[in-house]
Design a protein around this nucleic acid. Sequence first.
DNA 1: CGGAGGATTGATGCTGTTCAAGCGTAGTGG
DNA 2: CCACTACGCTTGAACAGCATCAATCCTCCG
Lengths: 247, 247
Amino acid sequence: MSIHSSLAAATTKLPIPVLSTYSVGHFEKLRLISLSTALPLAERDTLEPLSRRVSLDRKENLFRQDEPAGSVYNVSSGALRLYRILPDGRRQVTGFAFPGDFLGLSLLDRFNVSADALGPVTACRFDRRAFMELVRSQPNLMMHLHEITGHELSRAKDMMVLLGRRTADEKIAAFLMGLRARYAQIGWSAVTLELPMNRLDIADHLGLTIETVSRTLSRLDREGCILIVPGGVRLVDHARLDRLSAH
Amino acid sequence: MSIHSSLAAATTKLPIPVLSTYSVGHFEKLRLISLSTALPLAERDTLEPLSRRVSLDRKENLFRQDEPAGSVYNVSSGALRLYRILPDGRRQVTGFAFPGDFLGLSLLDRFNVSADALGPVTACRFDRRAFMELVRSQPNLMMHLHEITGHELSRAKDMMVLLGRRTADEKIAAFLMGLRARYAQIGWSAVTLELPMNRLDIADHLGLTIETVSRTLSRLDREGCILIVPGGVRLVDHARLDRLSAH
DNA sequence: CGGAGGATTGATGCTGTTCAAGCGTAGTGG
DNA sequence: CCACTACGCTTGAACAGCATCAATCCTCCG
């Protein structure tokens, strides 16, 4: 079973279907580009024999915060939300995982977030110990993983700025633009930006309430900045979105 | 095989000096335990020959966001603020660095924050390329650095929860308790919790305004929860602070 | 057709911001 | 030695942005 990076290119050329549902449509088509988006070919091949495939349905949990981290995962298809919950139920969605993303890569004893599927998900599971041993023996691979973690840390700091110092409008704009950029990275650009997560997930990600997210999106739509469509949005006024999300 | 255990235990037995000023007093006394707080002895010795000492005065800058990262630093004494600034001047202090902390450890091309000294600071500077080569050749060292970065990432997620989902009271309480915990880690426990950063730094760290920080601290003082003293605070009502900062 | 889950919209209110004034202490120079 | 300034911090009053509470709508699906 070989993994073709050409698939990424192929998917960008797919006709853009008009969606009539809230589906997570395209994510399913992104199967198998997983490792190649993050790692060079040679390293991907060393990892592959170690992996076992897992599948999840919508709302199923992959792992929980503070649970002993026995595995490392690489998302193959679908999307997940990563979050923490406070004792009283308040939730912070720390991020979303998409095809190609690694989960549990910091190799700590315990997961530092919970993860569950936003729709059908498949992922590669690696035994943590075996993964660590392999990685330890391959300096280049290790450096790559460290680099990935470094980028994740940098994005975490982006989120801090967003959460601490930006208005609701800016948060929404930055979220949409950021999502678009990530989709582009995994080789999936489309006119319609699909939102596999619901309003509450977005709210808990941006430190807002569901009502504020809804109102802000509605207003941006009314003002011609975006266009709300079933299952996602279209970004219309790029100049304004750029200005709002600028950092 | 914990990184922290042995030395942490030793340093916590240091006598606790009593301070009477705004000074960054204690930080200066923590010289030279720098590397050892984060790394085992053997690895510290391999690193030390590579380092060159740098000193900064209060308000001096160590490096800036987006600047090419030519060096990795390890703080020896003093404290720094790490921050990002938005085009319009809004600032998010992503964290503070204390003795033992590494800066630039993610080894990316560019620094992802700016850093400047809150008071007199000394640090060890390593050439990034040399550091990377050394690290690449020593899997154990590499794993340790990766683990440190993993912990930093976990703390970044704590900050997201704090910024996105907590009230001003909780932010302040969590900040104070967190600072206390970090001081304990570097072997410095005292009755008075020194605050080397000013109110504006705290505000920009917690996503609040300076007025709200001041008001909240005043109220917690008035209510007997803490005691504001020159240069810091004393934590009085631990039960309440625990409750407020619980996660 | 009817129910469930998600999203939208409106009315009201609170938390934290903004604007503004005043205080305390450290540092400086006459 | 004291006046004067600078800086950081505190406090007050009015305001705004976002939250809260509540009702309604829409779409999917059994």
